[in-house]
Write a protein that binds this DNA or RNA. Sequence first.
DNA 1: GAGCACTGC
Length: 860
Amino acid sequence: MTLTTALASGSTSAGHDSAAPMTNGISPSKSRSKVPNHLLAPSNSDVRVSNFHDDASDSSEEDYEPESTFSSALNRRSGKDQRISAPGGETDTSSPLTKSKKRKDRESLPNGNGNAKEREARPVKKGGEGSAEARRKEAERLFEKRQDLPFYQGRRMILEEIMKHDTTILLGETGCGKSTQLPQLLRTHTLSTSHYFNNHGKNAAAGPSIAITQPRRLPAIALANRVAAEMGCPIGGEVGYSVRFEEMTSRDTKIRYCTEGVLMRELANPDATQKVQSQSKDDGSSSNASTVEIHDGLNLLLKYDIIILDEAHERTLNTDFLCGALKKVQRIRKELAKSGKGKAKGDGAGKEVKELKLVVMSATLDPSKFQAFFGTGRDALLVKGRMYEVTTQHVANHVDDFIEAAGRQVINIHCGPGNEGDILVFMPGSDEIENCVELLRRVGKQLPDAQKQLQVLPLYAALPPSAQAKIFSPTPKNTRRVIVATNIAETSMTIPGVAYVVDTGYKKEKEYIYRTSGAIEQLRKKGISKAAAWQRTGRAGRERAGHCYRLFTKKAFDAMPEFDAPEIQRCNLSSAVLQLIAMGQNPFDFEYIDNPGRDAIAAAFQTLAGLEAISSPTHLTDLGRQMLRFPLDPPHARILISSFSLDCTNEIIDILSLINAGGTVFLDRPSDREEASTAKAKFVHRDGDHLTALNVFRSYIALRETKLSSSHKNSTGLGQGQGVVGWCKDNFVNGKTLVQALKIRDQLRELCEKAGKDWRVSAGSESAGVLRALLSGLFMNTAVIQADGSYRQTAGSLTVKIHPSSVLMSKRVPAILYDELTITSAFYARNVSVFEQHWLTEIPMFAKAGAAMPVGKGNL
DNA sequence: GAGCACTGC
């Protein structure tokens, strides 16, 4: 079977200023292109690849570097090995990764944001006088660059393929232009409009309406901005985006970039449906709200003609659920369109149900999974990316101390003759990073004066933004930068200037151990997959030819799994399963690309049933329906809903916002732990960590408000925010967490208002209601004290300890509830609060279980 | 008395 069809090759033609090489003497004409042969064309498979040329393009074969065509790359064994000395020995291997590459256009980087897609963005503000003309000029300028993209060369072929088929799989590396160009192509090309002209009848000019999903917010926003600029329209007009906390669309929006989560919500959330209905109403094309058709609970997403799933290779939880759900939507719409029952119910304008086109876009990895799932029965389309050659090298012998080995390799590179460019080191976690940074800084100080200096920077998500921003500041003169990073540098952040990658081959990953008594979490250091190793390797070839030093042997590499397990197979499914049921789907019958397994689904059912969100595997309760309105995990949603009747919504929203802000409230560095605990003391609430965190949040908000209002009054603007930042620092409080919590709080308050609930209702200083509400969602995460002072699970039989970071540590309280149970040197409950044991009798699950309850057996 | 990868609604 043919797996891929090559469409366009990365042009390496000269004459494009911005593609000029860096100062390392490598000219574009020298950049070679190969593909990861082992991924695309296993040597024992009967892969046949045809090479198409776009007849609409002016380019002839001669415009390409000989090796930049896909077929020649495939046929070529990667033979040009390059010998490099390794820290541990003398091995060398050439890389099958190297791909064709011409350096990306260098756009200015206003905010120092590192995302590749962000970098391309140039927002065009909506409105503003004379802006239309400015936008047109900018669009013209950008058009020159668009023509130079590999995608542009193959556009006709791509369009024909997509128009001919229901579902198309399109492969392309970063920089090929697929994410920005495909939606525009589908909207503006004559083939496209004629296709939709036939279907639309009178409203042909409207063209197709397109949704394109991204796993992350920033790229969704950046791509929308970029495409708006390219089309010369204001953002939020014809091109817009929808991500959490930010809606930038209007009734005119035809190209809508969104996060996967937003589209999932749209498929499942009754509120999202409401929104669609009211939008349809607004545009005047329909006389009532029933243009949205819900088919057995499944929203058919009739407002979209084409849905593009971008970065599908990442296989996030939502990618997988969207693939399954959209395949079903597509089939239903096809049936409705064919049977002539295609009229959306009660639609006065007589709008027909049109078929849904799907495009699944992915990096150039094995597309067979998607092909098999969607039954495309034909080639995936391939657009060549742009990447400089990267050579790889493995160590000869297993490395024990990878931190030391990484440090040594960095110094070797740094002191090697003629080595230019920055170094990116991949480490599993922050601890290893800090150790490695410390080591390198120490060694860096001992470098001879004649040697270039080393600037060593850590990079991981928990770092404050100011520390992260350093990565994007200009490197000081006569200095080489070394960035020691987690997986954040693998996909989420693109670091400029990297020519060398040092890969330890490790990452950290959260694992869930499921028990009938709830999950135990473990963050474990694990080996990476081959795909991840290539992804890391590729980080060196974005601006120039590069090298990747792998601190694991070739043998170890060969033994790595090809890909990471998809997220659906390694995380809690309760939220996704609830959404699936809301879509009218039975999670056991649902079509999965990779099945998560009965146990994982059953565990989700158990959680949902315990929370009274479902009454059967297919039936949502009113409570479940209510829970779906909030962007919270089911247990948290349950807590919020309980707060309505317990009169403590104000407090609970704040607490849930903090829990969901994705960081710790208190900074916890081993270096200043003592000072920190002194500072923390003034916020401590005797009932536990939740209310302690609430105290911090309230103090922070109060201070913030006084700062804001005072700076407003004297209008100097001086010192605004400074006090807040200083306050966080003085109190060892994580400002990032609090800022994020504020956003979530606003959203939850708004959603409460929409649901007719008053978020202002406060329990005052009375904590019982708050604790009861917490218990209503966290009842599985509870433990009672035993005679020896240890705690024993109520739902299970484990002995758990209160984590030393808790304010309840070393306090002997009768019963505790907690957010999570982690296993390290012991079973540690984290984020802990007290509750009264007899409250458990009010929890339906325990009330039913009756005898299983330890209530009344309290020891104290 | 400890050890936190990364996203998203």
